[in-house]
C-alpha cells in the first residue's frame, strides 16, 4: 500500500471520527424526507404539485450543492488544515516519513471522499423519498438522469474543496478559517448575482452545473468549457495550497 493511500486512510479515519462530519452526513440522509413532508403538506393544503417524483432528486441536489455540501467542505478543510495547524496536531503527521505534498494530497482526497459520500447519500435518500411522490411521466428514466446529475455535481464541489483548503492554510484556528470560507463563498455568490458578467470567472458560479447534464438538449460545448474552467481553478488552488503547505513552519 502506497504512503499516499495510507495517509489518505488516516485522514479519512479522522474525518469520520468527527461528530460534525457524522452530523452533516446524517442531515443529508434525512433532509429529503423532511422536504418530502413539506412538499406533501403544500400539495394537500394548496392543491398544487410542487414536484413530480422524477424531479425531486434534482431539486434536492440544487439545495445540497448550494448550502449543505459547501458547508461540509468548509468545515472539513478548516479542521484538517487550520485546526490541525492551530492545535499543532499536524506535527504528529508531519514528522512521519511522508513528504508534505502527499500529506496535502491525502487531506484533499479525504475531503473529496466525504463530498462524494454526501452526494451518494443525497442521491439515495432523495430517490427513496421520491418514491412516495407521484411520477406522472414515469420514474425510472428520472433515476438514471439524477444519478448522472449527482455524479456531475462532484466536479464543482471538488474545485470548491481546493479553494477552501487554500484559504484554510492562511489561518491557525478552524473557526476563523470556516468563517472566512463562508464569507468568501457568500460574497462570491452575491457578486455573481449583482454582476452576472463577472460570474463566469468565479468557480462558485457553477455549483449548479449539474443542470447542464439533464434535460433533452445537453450542450457538450458548454459542459467542456465549464469543466475546463473548474479543472483550471482546481489545479491553480491545489498547487498554490500544496506550495503553501510545503512552506508552513509548525
Amino acid at each position: 500500500m502506497s504512503l499516499l493511500m495510507s495517509a489518505t486512510i488516516n485522514e479519512w479515519v479522522k474525518l469520520r471520527a468527527r461528530k460534525k462530519t457524522v452530523f452533516f452526513l446524517a442531515l443529508i440522509a434525512v433532509l429529503p424526507f423532511l422536504g418530502l413532508m413539506a412538499v406533501q403538506r403544500l400539495q394537500n393544503g394548496v392543491g398544487i404539485a410542487a414536484f413530480s417524483g422524477a424531479d425531486y432528486p434534482i431539486a434536492f441536489l440544487g439545495g445540497l450543492t448550494l448550502f449543505v455540501l459547501p458547508l461540509l467542505i468548509f468545515l472539513s478543510a478548516s479542521d484538517m488544515f487550520a485546526g490541525e495547524l492551530g492545535d499543532r496536531t499536524i506535527r504528529s503527521v508531519l514528522v512521519r516519513p511522508v513528504n508534505r505534498y502527499k500529506i496535502f494530497a491525502s487531506k484533499l482526497l479525504a475531503i473529496f471522499g466525504v463530498t462524494a459520500l454526501g452526494l451518494l447519500l443525497g442521491w439515495i435518500s432523495s430517490t427513496a423519498a421520491s418514491l412516495f411522490m407521484d411520477a406522472p411521466d414515469g420514474r425510472w428514466g428520472g433515476v438514471a438522469e439524477s444519478a448522472l446529475a449527482y455524479a456531475a455535481a462532484a466536479v464543482p464541489m471538488f474545485a470548491l474543496g481546493t479553494v477552501s483548503a487554500f484559504l484554510s492554510l492562511g489561518f491557525r484556528n478552524a473557526s476563523g478559517a470556516l468563517a472566512v470560507s463562508i464569507l468568501v463563498y457568500a460574497a462570491a455568490k452575491l457578486v455573481a448575482f449583482a454582476f452576472p458578467q463577472i460570474a463566469a470567472f468565479l468557480p462558485t458560479a457553477y455549483t449548479d452545473w449539474h443542470q447542464l447534464w439533464i434535460g433533452g438538449a445537453v450542450s457538450f460545448g458548454k459542459i467542456a468549457a465549464i469543466f475546463s474552467f473548474l479543472l483550471g481553478c482546481g489545479i491553480v488552488f491545489y498547487t498554490s495550497g500544496s506550495y503553501l503547505f510545503e512552506k508552513k513552519e509548525v
Binding site: 479515519v13 471520527a17 468527527r18 461528530k19 492545535d87 499543532r88 496536531t89 506535527r91 504528529s92 514528522v95
Partner: peptide
Amino acid sequence: RVGVLIEKGEAFEYL
C-alpha cells in the same frame, strides 16, 4: 528510521 517528539506532542483528542 527516526521517531520524534517535539514539545508536548499533541494527540488527536477526539480519537
